[in-house]
Design a protein around this nucleic acid. Structure first.
Length: 472
RNA sequence: GCCCUGGUAGCUCAAUUGGUAGAGCGAGCGGCUGUUAACCGCUAGGUCGCAGGUUCGAGUCCUGCUCGGGGCGCCA
């Protein structure tokens, strides 16, 4: 008999023979008709489990089928039929049930058939994907990843595999994890008493990347449209439900483009992700909408239809100053917005994703393009930066138009007390055929949070890494 | 890093003014039923996070440690 995935079995014509393979979610027994069992089998190919009806006349009914527990793996041969019961349209009348793997001790099976807290399930991350929620998160995460790649590919963006280990000490996006093969108990020292990295594996100090941006800008300067999509690492001691030490980031970089082209790309990507999900994963979305966050589907529909709203930082501050909201930190021009300010803007004032642009230069990175004086009526100098804020998550995207003018870039490097020599190859891009360009970083897990309604970022990545957390 | 909170059965929690522990779910067994958050009955299961201290007596009070959770900062 042909092995069929559960998702395909649901769509097949009744009457046909088939084999399915999966894990038992629940089993209910009945004494009717001499005895029969209803076994819900899930293989992860879709949200729903399929109901297998096993009767007492199957040879191993008493010895095995009646003893099945949640978590057992089985193969079932049978016939797809219209269900006689309510709750499902089709079910499988089993002719044979083969037990592949038993649950050794049902009493201590970590994900038994009951409600579990997400905090507890994090401690059994190797088994939590067997629950409705984590199965759905895994499928949605995959679908979003595919949407991003397809969306960019269709617009001629090339995926560039920037390095995980970086010898560049100028990425500047946060604390780094050191990569080294030196013996901790016997660190080689120079004459000055410093660590002698020339003896290390790479012959120099190396770290895990915090961003592929600087590297991908080199490819942008020849291939025009490129992006990175891979893991990045921040050794910040961040203890929040929105930060991870290891997370995946999407960083497009587009040449011959300005800040508005950048926002348009980000906005289009969000719309595409939402509409693809509504198209392909309604089974999982309906679950999230019912059990995790009411109104999720309506929000995704809104995202799919409306472009991101853009507002200048200077105007955003004015909105905050005029609002009647009691902020812990009073907003004023020049401050870096607090989480409370960002949430007010996206959740209460606009009630939709908002791109805040043109921030004061003193609170942003050196590579962001300096605006002309008075851009958007700002009382001070600004850079062409943008943050996209979304309800429920806050900052999901951070980007900018890059400074393509070498003299201005050098001025900024000096102003911020950075070492020009460290950026020699980055500066070369401005020396040889420079071009206006822009890009952004999208925190992939934050996108998954936004699209599932999940509350904690540690529940939307398979094996979360955070301070004091690197199990599995 | 800062502030706030919690750790009691496999899981989620309860335990009055300090008097050595209970429920629901899950699990096992039995009953009932084309069942589906099934239902009914019985049973098993706990050095109350760890280490000290106060007390005749500590799950309950004190100190230290440890591991969670929430918020803030840093950002994506």
């Amino acid at each position: 008999m042909a092995w069929m995935k559960v998702k395909d079995a649901f769509k097949a014509d009744p009457g046909g023979e088939l084999t399915i393979k999966g894990w038992v979610r629940t089993k209910r027994d009945s004494k009717a008709d001499g005895g029969l069992s209803f076994v819900a089998v899930n293989d992860g190919t879709c949200f729903d489990s399929i109901q297998v009806v096993a009767r007492h006349d199957i040879s191993n009914y008493e010895s095995e089928i009646a003893k099945l527990n949640t978590g057992c793996s089985i193969e079932v041969d049978g016939v797809l039929v219209q269900s006689q019961g309510k709750g499902q349209s089709v079910e499988i009348q089993a002719t044979e049930v083969r037990v592949i793997g038993w649950v050794e001790d049902p009493d201590t099976y970590p994900v038994s058939n009951k409600r579990h807290s997400f905090e507890y399930l994090r401690e059994v991350a190797h088994l939590r994907t067997r629950t409705n929620t984590f199965g759905a998160v895994a499928r949605v995460r995959h679908a979003l990843s595919q949407s991003v790649h397809r969306f960019l590919d269709e617009q001629d963006y090339y995926w560039v595999h920037t390095p995980i280990v970086t010898g560049s000490d100028c990425e500047g996006a946060g604390e780094m994890f050191r990569v080294s093969t030196l013996d901790f108990m016997n660190i080689p020292k120079t004459e000055d008493g410093e660590v002698d990295y020339s003896k290390d594996f790479f012959g120099k100090e190396t770290n895990l990347t915090v961003s592929g941006q600087l590297n991908v800008e080199t490819y942008c300067s020849s291939l025009s449209r490129v992006y990175t999509f891979g893991p990045t690492f921040r050794a910040e001691n961040s203890n929040t439900s929105r930060h991870l030490a290891e997370f995946w980031m999407i960083e497009p970089e587009l040449a011959f483009a300005d800040l508005h082209d950048d926002i348009e790309l980000a906005s289009g990507m969000l719309r595409r992700c939402a509409s693809d999900l509504l198209e392909s994963r309604m089974d999982d979305l309906e679950f999230f909408n019912l059990r995790i966050e009411k109104g999720l589907i309506d929000r995704l529909k809104m995202i799919a239809e409306s472009p991101v709203k853009t507002i200048a930082y200077t105007d955003a501050i004015k909105i905050l100053e005029k609002s009647n909201e009691k902020f812990e930190y009073q907003p004023s021009w020049g401050i870096d917005m607090q989480t409370e300010h960002e949430r007010y803007l996206t959740e209460k004032h606009f009630k939709q994703p908002v791109a805040v642009i043109n921030y004061p230069k003193d609170i942003k990175a050196f590579y962001m393009r300096l605006n002309d004086d008075g851009t958007d009526g700002a009382p001070g100098r600004t850079v062409a930066a943008m943050d996209i804020l979304v309800p429920g998550v806050g900052e999901m995207i951070g980007g900018s138009q890059r400074e393509e003018r070498l003299d201005v870039l050098d001025g900024r490097i000096e102003e911020m007390d950075l070492n020009k020599d460290d950026y020699w190859w980055y500066r070369d891009l401005r020396k040889y055929g420079t071009v206006p360009h822009a890009g952004f970083g999208l925190g992939f897990e934050r996108l998954v949070l936004f699209c599932t309604g999940m509350q904690n970022i540690r529940d939307v990545i398979p094996f979360p890494r955070a301070p004091r957390q690197a199990d599995f």
